[in-house]
């Protein structure tokens, strides 16, 4: 039980996220209106994804240092749950954008499809998708682990230009990009409201811990399956 305190913490933080996230006061903003509360859910998915992918990256490096198959299983499962969080982030973003960009700002479909943040996130997720395809295409365990660990490092490195740097360089409708100053008076992280921080930061920790919990379950299951291969 002493080892499981963070699971309880995750539960408590997420209960707080839902209660506080719906009931506490939020800043009144144009276009976003009440949907600013999606910050506690949509944005947390991406933060959770980044944390899980970073962990996966660390385990891939660990694998390449000692060639312990256990680390390969860790890296694989963290990347899998990270991608799942990314897909959830993308799906929630689609719904949110549908109401704030299309309905309220009457952006054309062309503008939405040209949106660099969406393209970047799609590229990042597809690169991780290729990671799983690559893993599936090997029959030799060691070769699979070795090549996919190297590929995982490349995929992690590609995250930064595709979702962090390029959307900020070229400007986009998405908050936090240069173009959003003119088109979208939305959330700017430089002056993100204190009332939002109060729920936002606990929400990130809560969602990330839930992701880690699910990952540990998947890892333990995989370890039981591969018991004969690991022989340790």
């Amino acid at each position: 039980m002493q080892k499981n305190w963070w699971k309880i913490l995750s539960f408590l933080l997420l209960v707080y996220t839902i209660v506080g996230g719906f009931l506490l006061d939020v800043p009144r903003l144009f276009i976003l209106n009440e949907t600013i509360r999606n910050l506690y859910f949509h944005v947390c998915m991406w933060f959770g994804m980044m944390i899980l992918f970073s962990t996966s990256f660390v385990y891939s490096i660990k694998y390449l240092r000692g060639f312990n198959l256990r680390n390969d299983i860790y890296a694989h499962q963290y990347a899998a749950v990270g991608s799942f969080f990314g897909i959830l982030g993308y799906a929630t973003g689609t719904i949110w954008a549908n109401y704030t960009w299309v309905t309220d700002q009457s952006q054309s479909l062309g503008n939405i499809l040209r949106e660099p943040k969406l393209i970047g996130a799609a590229i990042a997720l597809l690169i991780y998708g290729a990671y799983f395809v690559l893993r599936g295409s090997f029959t030799d365990m060691d070769k699979k682990a070795r090549v996919s660990a190297v590929y995982n490092i490349f995929a992690f490195a590609m995250l930064f230009p595709s979702i962090w740097i390029i959307p900020r360089l070229v400007g986009s409708l998405h908050p936090g990009s240069p173009g959003s100053e003119s088109g979208n008076p939305a959330l700017n992280f430089k002056d993100i409201d204190g009332r939002l921080r109060l729920v936002f930061y606990p929400a990130i920790i809560g969602w990330a811990l839930l992701g880690v919990w699910i990952t540990t379950l998947k890892i333990r299951l995989q370890l039981i399956k591969d018991k004969t291969l690991l022989h340790d």
Binding site: L14, V15, I18, V19, F22, L23
Partner: peptide, 10 residues
Amino acid sequence: VVAVCLTILI
């Protein structure tokens, strides 16, 4: 809304 979301979470 809070009750529904809490039920799902729990």
